[in-house]
C-alpha cells in the first residue's frame, strides 16, 4: 500500500527540516514554555523587528524523485480561537520562494531570511485563544497533496522602562461595606514589569467582622470577542497570603509581592481586535465563617527590556508553595 501510494506520489515523499538562525549572527535564543503534559517545550525566541533566518533542508525519499511546482517558506502570525479550531486567522503572512518548479532528486538546502519582521504581538497560549508564529515550508505539487511543514517559534516583545513619572500617584482606593468593613488599599503603581515587586499597604478604617486572613491573588482574564459575544476566561495564577488573623481599626498591613515566581505575560489589549489578556490584583479578605470579601484592581504588566537577557532560558520560577 505504501508503495502504491508512494508510486502514486501520495505518500510523504519529501522530508523537510528547518533550522532557525538569527539575522545578527548571535546564538539563537529560546523560550521555555510550560506545557500541560509536563515536559517543558523549548522554542526559538524572537522579537519584533528582528531578522529571522532559516536554513531549510528538503530531501526526497531515497530513490524517489519528487516533482513539484515550487518550494516556499512562509512566516505566519496566527490567532486561533478555541471556538474556531482549525481555522486560524492569519494576521501576518510573509513568503519567500525557495525553489521554482522542478524535480527534487537530492537533498537541497535553501537559506531564507525575513528581515526586520514586524511582529507586534507576543506569542500567547491561553485558555480560549492562542497567538502563534511559525515558519511554514510548502512543497507544492500538482496532483498530490503538497508537503507542508510548520516550524513554530516564539515571540516576545520588550518595553523600555517607562520614564519615571514624578509624583506618580499610587493606586489608592477606599472600599467597604457600610458599617461593616472599610479599608483603603494602596499599590505603589499601576504598571509593573514581569519581575517587579508589588508594594502596597492595606489600611483598616473600620473592622466589624472577624477576619481570618487576607490574601492577594493575581488573576488573568482572557477576553475574546466583543460586545455581546464577548467571552471571558479568568485564571488565578497566584495566591499570596498577606495577613493572618484579625486586624483592628487603624492597623496597616504591608504588601510585598514578588511577581517573578509566577508565569505571567504582559498585558495584551485588543490584539488584532480578537482578544485581550488583562491582569488583576484581587484583594481577598476571608472572615471566620469563610465568607470572602474582595476587590479587584487591574494592573498593567509589561516585559522590561532589561530582562531580555534573563529571558533567554528558564525564568527563575522559585515559587515556594506550601
Amino acid at each position: 500500500m505504501k508503495n502504491i501510494l508512494g508510486n502514486l506520489g501520495l505518500a510523504t515523499t519529501a522530508s523537510v527540516q528547518l533550522t532557525f538562525k538569527r539575522g545578527d549572527g548571535q546564538p539563537l535564543k529560546t523560550a521555555t514554555l510550560k506545557t500541560k503534559g509536563g515536559e517543558p517545550e523549548q522554542l526559538p525566541l524572537f522579537s519584533s523587528k528582528e531578522t529571522i533566518c532559516a536554513e531549510v533542508k528538503v530531501a526526497n525519499s531515497p530513490g524517489k524523485k519528487v516533482d513539484h511546482y515550487g518550494i516556499k517558506v512562509q512566516l505566519l502570525g496566527q490567532i486561533e480561537l478555541a471556538s474556531e479550531r482549525g481555522h486560524p486567522q492569519d494576521f501576518l503572512s510573509l513568503v519567500r520562494d525557495l525553489a521554482p518548479q522542478g524535480d527534487l532528486v537530492k537533498q537541497e538546502t535553501y537559506p531564507a531570511e525575513f528581515a526586520n519582521v514586524e511582529m507586534q504581538y507576543d506569542s500567547h497560549r491561553g485558555i480560549q485563544v492562542r497567538l502563534r508564529y511559525l515558519l511554514r515550508v510548502t512543497i507544492s505539487r500538482s496532483y498530490a497533496n503538497s508537503v507542508v511543514k510548520d516550524f513554530p517559534f516564539w515571540v516576545r516583545n520588550y518595553e523600555a522602562a517607562p520614564a519615571p513619572v514624578p509624583n506618580a500617584a499610587p493606586i489608592k482606593m477606599e472600599v467597604g461595606i457600610e458599617d461593616c468593613l472599610h479599608i483603603e488599599f494602596e499599590y505603589d503603581k499601576a504598571k509593573y514589569h514581569l519581575k517587579d515587586t508589588v508594594v502596597g499597604k492595606i489600611y483598616f478604617l473600620l473592622v466589624r467582622i472577624k477576619l481570618k486572613h487576607m490574601e492577594v491573588e493575581i488573576r488573568r482574564r482572557e477576553t475574546t470577542g466583543a460586545g455581546t459575544h464577548a467571552r471571558n476566561e479568568t485564571e488565578t495564577l497566584a495566591k499570596y497570603e498577606i495577613m493572618d488573623g484579625a486586624p483592628v481599626r487603624g492597623e496597616s498591613i504591608p504588601i510585598r509581592l514578588f511577581l517573578s515566581p509566577y508565569d505571567l505575560t504582559p498585558t495584551f489589549s485588543n490584539v488584532h481586535n480578537r482578544f485581550s489578556v488583562k491582569y488583576y490584583l484581587n484583594l481577598v479578605l476571608v472572615d471566620e465563617e469563610d465568607r470572602r470579601y474582595f476587590k479587584q484592581q487591574e494592573i498593567q504588566l509589561f516585559r522590561l527590556l532589561d530582562d531580555k537577557a534573563a529571558a533567554n532560558g528558564t525564568a527563575e520560577a522559585a515559587h515556594i508553595s506550601s
Partner: peptide, 13 residues
C-alpha cells in the same frame, strides 16, 4: 532575603 518572601503563607514567610 527575596527568595524566602516567595512563600505563599504569611507566617512561615
Amino acid at each position: 532575603y527575596e527568595l524566602v518572601q516567595h512563600a505563599g503563607n504569611v507566617l512561615p514567610r
